[in-house]
Design a protein around this nucleic acid. Sequence first.
DNA 1: TAAGATTGACTCGTCAATCTTT
DNA 2: AAAGATTGACGAGTCAATCTTA
Lengths: 166, 166
Amino acid sequence: MADDVDAILEQWARERPDLDVSPMGVFGRLARAARLADARLDEVFATHGLDRASFDVLATLRRSGPPYRLTPGELQRTAMVTTSAIAQRLNKLEERGLVSRTPNAADGRVIDVTLTPAGLDLVDRALPDHVANEHRLLAGLSARQRSQLTQLLRALTESLQQLAEP
Amino acid sequence: MADDVDAILEQWARERPDLDVSPMGVFGRLARAARLADARLDEVFATHGLDRASFDVLATLRRSGPPYRLTPGELQRTAMVTTSAIAQRLNKLEERGLVSRTPNAADGRVIDVTLTPAGLDLVDRALPDHVANEHRLLAGLSARQRSQLTQLLRALTESLQQLAEP
DNA sequence: TAAGATTGACTCGTCAATCTTT
DNA sequence: AAAGATTGACGAGTCAATCTTA
C-alpha cells in the first residue's frame, strides 16, 4: 500500500532523522492529487475546445443565472487568479465570441461581461460531460469517504486562510 | 460553516437542478486547498532565495543521500513535470552554482546532476524552516484528521492514476 | 531505432505600471 | 486619492523538434 510519497518520507527518515517531516505526507499528496485531477479534468474540457481557465469563466457566468452577466472584479473574486489573468482570459473568450464586454451603466469604471448565446450553448453542452467526468473520477470513493474528504479539505483550507500573510 | 464552494454548489442547484454537481465539492476544495498551500509554502522558500521548483530539485537530490547525485530523468520521475521543465530548472540552479552537471561515465547519453557544497548548504538551511512551516500550517488539524486526510488523498490519487488516459 | 537531455516556440499566470472614472 | 480594468514585461510550464549516444 506504499505510494510515491511514502518512499519520499522514508528517504528523509534516513537522511534527516532529526526532522519530523510527517506533514509532507499531507502536502505532498495534496499537490499530487490536485495535479492529477487537473489533468483528468482537462481531457474532457479539451473535447469541447476549452481549457480549465476558459471553462471556469464560462461556468461562473452560467451559474450566476440570467442575464449571465458579471464584472471582471466579480469573476476574479471566485477564480483564484489575479484580475490581469481574468482580463487575458476575457480577451480570448471575446475573440471567440463566447462573451461580450459592454460598459456598465451605473459605474463608468466597470465593465459588464455577458455570456453570448454561443457561450451559453457551449457551456451548457460541456457541463454535463464535465460533471459526468467528475463522478467517474470519484467512483473509487464511497459516499462516506467523499464526505470525510470534503470536511477535511474544508478544515485545511480554513487553517491555510487563517495563516495567510496580512 | 458554509464556505465559497458551498455557495457555488447552491448556485448550480438553482440553475441546473437536473445535474448532480456534488463532486465539485471535492474537486473545488482540492484545487483551492492546493493553491493556498502552495502560496503559504512559497513564502518560506522565498526567505531563502528559492521557489518551489528550485527547492524541489535541491530537496530531491538531498534526500537521495550521498553523493547527492541523480540524472535529469530520475529527477523528472519524482517531480510531476516534464523533462524539459527539469532542464530549465537545472539551467538556473547551475548558473547559481547550486548544482553541477557532469557526463555520466557508464552511459554517454546521461548527465549526472550533483548538489554542490553551496547547494547542500542552502537546502540544509532551508529545510528546517520549510518543515516547521508545514507543521504550523497543519496545526489546525488533529493527528487523527491528518491521518484520515492522508488516507483519503491516497485513495483519491490511486483512483485518478487508474483512470489516466493510456 | 530508441533513449536521454536540451532548446525554441508558445501559453498562461503574476507583477508593476497605466488609464479612466469615482 | 482610490477603485476597476487593462497592458507589457517576465517567469515557468508544455510540446515538438533536435542532438548525441546506445
